[in-house]
Amino acid sequence: MSAAQGHAREIGGADAAERIAEIHIADLHAYYGESHALHGIDMTVHRGELVTLLGRNGAGRSTTLRAIVGLIGRRTGSIRLKGEEVIARPPHAIAHLGVGYCPEERGIFASLSVEENLMLPPVVAGGGMAVAEIYEMFPNLAERRRSPGTRLSGGEQQMLAMARILRTGADVLLLDEITEGLAPVIVEKLAEVLGVLKARGYTIVLVEQNFRFAAAMADRHFIMDHGHVAEVVEAAELEAKAHVFEEYLSV
């Protein structure tokens, strides 16, 4: 990719030094009970960027997202969201900084209808998508708005899980394995949606297994291994650093 394209992406400013760090993580450790899951993560994501967390199962990718939104009880180090330190804040306070989280298991509520699921997350900032706009983006959800949330197909549930955080005005999106187990046509639809979101200036962290899905859009890839960030690969370095992907992602 050319440098000109690189600049066009930078919403925070023309120079790298002026870019605004939406997520700044330093020496993050996280624990599940006795198990030490993250061993000192350092990571910066700028406003308007789309980055991926790649790695094998258990490398700490989902844990990193869970740590950012506060779902891991014991964490140390520093997580700054839009300049605010959140390491000691409860999850509900973190969400109100404009963070939208889409969990790996999708987290659709069975006792809520599709529309109730969609309307559930509180508005955390201005500028969220209108419900009409969301239904336009995901017409299937509009058709099935009265059904119980978990009656939807896997793909529809994934769209619902995405749609409900777009309504809230969150502009930092943490998306965990959104293409997992879905048909190619749905994956294509999700790619299209991500493209729209990126063009609108959302900051997106994508945990993915499907490297092809992510590579086309991402500005940067964080390769995780054993609770560390093993490598950072810029979009421009994809070919030069192909060996990195071989080393950390091949099974």
Partner: peptide, 9 residues
């Protein structure tokens, strides 16, 4: 937990 991560106290 997920409800709280959405911003509900």
């Amino acid at each position: 937990k997920l409800l709280q991560a959405f911003g509900v106290n």
